[in-house]
């Protein structure tokens, strides 16, 4: 451990100023903070709050219901990443319907679907395209391949989200946030400049951080020191530039356009999503209007957890009715979910 980090740990451990709340927006940061035991090291006066950066956790129930419906349609197969399989819509998850005979296939990369579709031309494959700015370029790449290879039996059911508007919504949701650890993977694509307008508007500092314990501690330290300033600090320069990945951004612009998006527990947020442009509508599996959000268990606080209003441990169901083996909400299901990490790592 370097002397710099030792000094930072020392400062954060003995911090005795005003109470300060810092939100880690990204689910992978939530995981890294829990795994490195950071909350156990720093002063109780610095409160780390998990944010809306778990794509599965913020997906509205109507979207999952639609996937469940499609999985039992004739000659149709739903293709998804792992985490999505376990999250329940208003009644069932994809895993439930798969056990009842629904066609659900899990892939590791969206591009795996191409070979599936080429091998089985009479089946329509529906890709459950969820994710943030990080994942969208891969979906754009998928559409490009489909167009080039004239593949017509793949459609995307999209629930794609973008971060800045959601962060502003979270900031205004009630809990006083004094600084944001900006999402690292998202920033690789968007660039750190993406967060300047929101930082300036809210007069709150943002630190783009990497994923090691040391990088997160350095970001927390910088945010504590920059409290009240509307600035963006890029502390993940090995992967993030000011402008981001321009080629990826252009590719996304070619196929997708901004739209209003439904976030679980936070309602519809203006211009916080992406949807296929009208000229590519033939590849869309009916993504518009999937905004209804039914909470499976009335006591579930997932909506408030993703908005940072409640800590997982403040939910009445946490560690009682709701555990990873009997999850009542998406945040306890996903391996990027705040509740899952608080539970498995006994985070305080």
């Amino acid at each position: 451990m370097s002397d710099d980090i030792k000094e930072i740990i020392d400062y954060l451990k003995n911090y005795d100023g005003d109470n300060i709340s810092i939100m880690e927006v990204c689910g992978t940061h939530t995981a890294a903070i829990s795994e490195s035991g950071i909350t156990d090291i720093i002063s109780d006066k610095i409160c780390l709050v998990s944010g809306p950066g778990c794509p599965v956790c913020v997906t509205a129930s109507a979207y999952i219901d639609r996937l469940v419906e499609l999985s039992v349609a004739e000659k149709t197969c739903v293709v998804t990443f792992g985490d999505m399989i376990r999250v329940r819509g208003s009644k069932k998850s994809l895993r439930d319907i798969s056990a009842e005979g629904g066609n659900v296939v899990m892939v590791y990369s969206p591009l795996d679907i191409i070979s599936l579709a080429e091998e089985n031309r009479d089946v329509t494959y529906i890709f459950a395209a969820v994710g943030f700015e990080t994942t969208t370029p891969v979906y754009a790449l998928l559409i490009k391949e489909m167009v080039e290879k004239k593949i017509t039996n793949i459609k995307l059911l999209t629930a794609l989200k973008t971060m800045p508007a959601a962060i502003e919504k979270v900031y205004n949701a009630g809990k006083c946030i004094d600084g944001f650890i900006a999402p690292g993977h998202v920033s690789v694509i968007t660039g750190s400049n993406e967060f300047i307008p929101v930082a300036e508007k809210l007069s709150v500092p943002f630190a783009v951080a990497g994923f090691t314990g040391e990088e997160l501690l350095a970001a927390i330290y910088a945010l504590v020191k920059s409290r009240g300033k509307g600035i963006v600090l890029n502390m993940y320069k090995s992967a993030v530039t000011a402008e981001g990945n321009i080629a990826a951004k252009n590719m996304v612009k070619q196929y997708f356009m901004p739209c209003d998006a439904a976030w679980r527990g936070m309602g519809i947020i203006k211009a916080s999503g992406l949807i296929l442009k009208p000229e590519y509508a033939e590849f869309d599996a009916g993504s518009e209007g999937l905004t209804e959000d039914v909470i499976f268990n009335k006591g579930c606080s997932c909506g408030e957890v993703v908005a940072g209003i409640k800590s997982p441990t403040e939910c009445a169901l946490y560690n009682k009715a709701c555990t990873p083996s009997s999850p009542q909400g998406a945040c306890m299901v996903s391996t990027e979910g705040a509740c899952y990490h608080y539970y498995t790592n006994r985070r305080k």
């Binding site: 490195s36 090291i41 599965v56 985490d83 083996s325 990027e336 498995t344």
Partner: peptide
Amino acid sequence: EGVVVNTHLGGRRGVGVLVGEGLPRIC
């Protein structure tokens, strides 16, 4: 009770049993 990991940074975290299949993350 349980399993506790003393982390590289000097913190402590609990680790539970694996739930589900240990799937790769989504993003």
